[in-house]
Design a protein around this nucleic acid. Sequence first.
DNA 1: TTGACACTACTGCATTTTGCAGTACATTAC
DNA 2: GTAATGTACTGCAAAATGCAGTAGTGTCAA
Lengths: 215, 215
Amino acid sequence: MASRLTTSSYAVLGLLRIQPWTGYELTRQATRSLRFAWPKSERLLYAEPKKLVEHGLVTAHDEQVGQRSRTVYTITDEGRAALSEWMTTSPQPPVLEAEALLRLLFAENGTTEDVIAALDALAADAADLHEQVTSINSGYLDGEHPFPERTHLSVLFATFQLELFDLIVNWVEFAKSEIAAWPTTEGLGMTDRTAAILDCIKERRSVLAAPLDGG
Amino acid sequence: MASRLTTSSYAVLGLLRIQPWTGYELTRQATRSLRFAWPKSERLLYAEPKKLVEHGLVTAHDEQVGQRSRTVYTITDEGRAALSEWMTTSPQPPVLEAEALLRLLFAENGTTEDVIAALDALAADAADLHEQVTSINSGYLDGEHPFPERTHLSVLFATFQLELFDLIVNWVEFAKSEIAAWPTTEGLGMTDRTAAILDCIKERRSVLAAPLDGG
DNA sequence: TTGACACTACTGCATTTTGCAGTACATTAC
DNA sequence: GTAATGTACTGCAAAATGCAGTAGTGTCAA
């Protein structure tokens, strides 16, 4: 009995729509783009194409490389149809997982240095991801794209990541400036600065735009 | 044999550090704050405190409400110590899951209307989440906080969410204006506008700031 | 020319996490 | 008094992860 198709199945099917790949190549390709919208484990990426074969959306054939065989997966017409169908359904809400923000929420259990360290790590990770996206995209102007006909998609997709990672870096800057004004992590409650931030929120002003009063 | 502690264990431990809760109350509380940094299923939130008991970080005692009993979990000194210890460790990188972005990446399999619909859904979800965070926080200025001594943390935490949801709404606006210039979803490759975006990326300018040329 | 090391190409298994249905008592509104 | 909503969970199957293990291939240098 074939198990049901998940969003991850369609993610892999989407990659196979571009061209035939082996399981290993799917994991490589997922690291380049998929992971920024749908981060899945290598293990799953190996399992999904097999499921797609059971559903008839993909065919598998073995190629021989010396003593070793590799399985190449190719999308079928049914696969293309299923993908088009899926495109018309409505997507799940976005979800962010950020352990560093968890540290902020529970900051009272550690020192201000602990929170700052967690936020620094977050900013460093964001800067690193920004760099990765930039380096993948910077080649496109010189025609370095494995799928040149897809450049308009890759680039528009990348703009979101870059804005997001920039936001994280900037927000960490802001958060650190707030925390620098804390004498301790615990029991501060409603400070002047916190009240000033709440004013921003009420008026829908960005806290990143300009320095706050109330400090 | 007690299974090992995960980040989710510490997330629940962090809530229990604030005050004793039942499993059900933990799920309620997680919906208010935890979920924006560490979104976990209700099922898991019920399971974690039991694990914490096995590790001696939490104690459980049953209360009677009529015919029904409920289990209240209370943090121990060992629990507080474990939490402080955890605060000094370094957090995992942030992870975003956005099915709507997946639709953009694979836009060529559907119509421009399909992508637009997915992006509209993303913006609607973000606006909805923005509203939820705002409504939770807007009461704080009037003293409506269950844990007033934690206001400085809640509010600083909320600023990130609000900036993020704003970004999503604004970026969707931008992305839709780009897509509006597409005659089709497929095979466009390097258009003038895409080249203009890549210039922004190279110079690290935000694409959201000002209208692009090249259209 | 051989040995070390990175890369390719996976699989198996234990554990973690989710989704969903199901159970059952309590409280509130009408 | 009963219907609807809220409280307070549990069981189970399925999805997903993490990690170790296996094994052949290519490459560069001593």
